[in-house]
Simulated assay, not measured.
Amino acid sequence: MIYLARHGETAFNAEGRMQGHLDSPLTERGRAQAQAMGERLAELIGDPSGWRLISSPLGRAQATARAIAARVGIMTEIDHRLIEVSFGAWDGRLRAELARENPDTFARGQWQFAAPDGESYEAVEGRVADWLAELPPEPERKIVIVCHGGSGRVVRGAYLGLSRAETWAQDVPQDAVYRLLNGSSERIDCSSVAAE
């Protein structure tokens, strides 16, 4: 079983800014989301024996993982293959500005892989598939991961055998986790943290 969490809301998320490999701190709302994920995962997991918590190396994912670890009672490991998609020259830019500057690219969808010097879908899928292949088989697999909107979509897509279009059509909430088990994915809401 894998529980997949996206990091809590960050300052860049609130601004509509592309993060990619850059980082920004969790907002107050993001910290509340991380704590809520920790509470829910503690209920779902119960006894933490045999469980692993693996995070992307980026600060926003690690901050979320720390909140989860404190509640669940397991140490955090880091795996660079869970890092967010690099948006190259677009990292740190406002999404609205990029859409105005590149209307054709944004109108086509899947603009996440159109950035100059950005990472390709195939590169992200390759590193994620490599990570999944190293995990113990089900039902021995007991993993919690904390990653990102883009890389989390690809993890779920690779696990479920989805096409690229289906992978990118998935939701990326910051107040829920996904349980990946027996070839299926189930969304589990963690909190009613509302945008204030």
Results as ranks from 00 to 15, higher is better:
5 A>H: 00
9 E>G: 00
15 E>W: 08
20 G>R: 11
22 L>H: 14
24 S>D: 05
29 R>D: 08
29 R>T: 14
32 A>F: 00
32 A>E: 08
33 Q>G: 00
36 A>C: 05
44 L>K: 13
52 R>Q: 14
53 L>Q: 01
54 I>F: 11
55 S>W: 06
56 S>Q: 05
57 P>H: 13
58 L>E: 14
58 L>D: 10
66 R>N: 11
68 I>V: 05
71 R>E: 11
75 M>G: 11
76 T>M: 05
78 I>F: 02
79 D>R: 02
79 D>Y: 01
81 R>V: 06
82 L>Y: 08
83 I>H: 10
83 I>S: 09
88 G>P: 01
88 G>K: 03
92 G>V: 13
92 G>D: 13
93 R>M: 14
93 R>F: 10
95 R>S: 13
99 A>M: 10
108 R>K: 13
108 R>N: 05
109 G>N: 11
112 Q>S: 11
112 Q>R: 13
117 D>E: 14
120 S>F: 01
120 S>T: 15
124 V>Q: 09
130 D>P: 01
133 A>T: 08
134 E>M: 07
135 L>H: 06
135 L>D: 04
136 P>F: 05
140 E>L: 04
143 I>S: 04
152 G>P: 00
156 R>Y: 03
159 Y>F: 09
165 A>W: 02
165 A>K: 06
173 P>Q: 14
176 A>V: 09
179 R>N: 10
180 L>P: 08
180 L>Q: 14
181 L>D: 15
182 N>E: 13
182 N>F: 10
182 N>R: 12
183 G>N: 06
186 E>N: 00
187 R>E: 15
189 D>H: 10
195 A>W: 00
